[in-house]
Simulated scan of single mutants.
Amino acid sequence: MYLVLIYTQGFAIKQKVNPWKTYVKLSAVLMGSHGLTKGSLAYLNYPAQIMFKSTKVLPVMIMGAFIPGLRRKYPVHEYISAMLLVVGLILLTLADAGTSPNFSVIGILMILAL
């Protein structure tokens, strides 16, 4: 669908950065991530799903800090906010598992898979 819309708007690629195979793989991963996110609603309630989706910034920070080609340095306040996010996630998980009838470890694994 995106390709059709790009074509109808007259957008032309001046120079491709990556081969088409890379774009196809990326779109498959994004499609799988979206499907697992929607499928996890059968096992999690909506607030828990949103909280787990917000933690996807943590692997990005970890990868950015430790991959030799990137070696990004984040300010101290970003590390503090990441730790607070993890603490909030733990507290929500503990509170929600005891009170919500629609909460399962399968849903957590689905939302964290991609």
Results as ranks from 00 to 15, higher is better:
Ser54Gln: 07
Pro59Ile: 00
Ala42Pro: 00
Lys25Trp: 12
Leu44Thr: 01
Ser27Asn: 09
Tyr46Gly: 05
Leu36Arg: 00
Ala48Thr: 15
Ala28Phe: 09
Thr37His: 02
Ala48Met: 15
Thr22Glu: 14
Tyr46Phe: 12
Ser54Met: 10
Ser27Leu: 12
Leu26Tyr: 11
Ser33Pro: 04
Phe52Ala: 05
Phe52Trp: 10
Ser27Ala: 14
Leu26Asn: 14
Pro47Thr: 02
Asn45Leu: 02
Thr55Met: 03
Lys53Ala: 11
Met31Lys: 03
Thr37Arg: 01
Lys56Phe: 13
Leu30Asn: 10
Ser27Tyr: 08
Val29Ala: 15
Ser54Gly: 13
Lys25Val: 12
Gly39Cys: 02
Met31Glu: 06
Lys56Glu: 11
Lys38Asp: 10
Ala28Val: 13
Thr22Tyr: 14
Leu30Phe: 11
Ala28Ile: 13
Leu41Val: 01
Leu58Lys: 04
Lys53Gln: 08
Gln49Val: 13
Met51Phe: 05
Tyr43Asp: 05
Lys21Tyr: 13
Lys56Gln: 08
Ala28Asn: 08
Lys56His: 12
Asn45Phe: 07
Val57Ser: 08
Gly32Trp: 02
Met51Glu: 07
Pro59Asp: 01
Lys56Ala: 12
Ala48His: 06
Tyr43Gln: 07
Ala48Leu: 06
Gly32Met: 07
Ala42Thr: 09
Ser40Ile: 03
Gly39Gln: 04
Pro59Ser: 05
Gln49Tyr: 05
Gln49Leu: 10
Ala48Gly: 06
Gln49Phe: 14
Met31Val: 14
Leu41Ile: 01
Leu58Glu: 06
Lys53Trp: 10
His34Arg: 09
Ala42Tyr: 12
Pro47Tyr: 08
Leu41Lys: 02
Ser27His: 08
Ser54Ile: 03
Asn45Val: 02
Thr37Ile: 10
Lys38Ala: 13
Tyr46Trp: 10
Lys38Glu: 09
Ala42Phe: 12
Leu36Ser: 05
Lys25Glu: 12
Ser33His: 12
Ala28Cys: 12
Lys38Pro: 00
Leu26Ile: 12
His34Gln: 10
Thr55Pro: 01
Tyr43Ala: 04
Lys38Trp: 14
Ile50Phe: 12
Ala28Thr: 08
Ser54Phe: 06
Ser40Glu: 00
Asn45Ser: 09
Pro59Phe: 00
Gly32Asn: 02
Lys25Ala: 13
Gly35Asn: 12
Pro59Cys: 03
Ile50Leu: 14
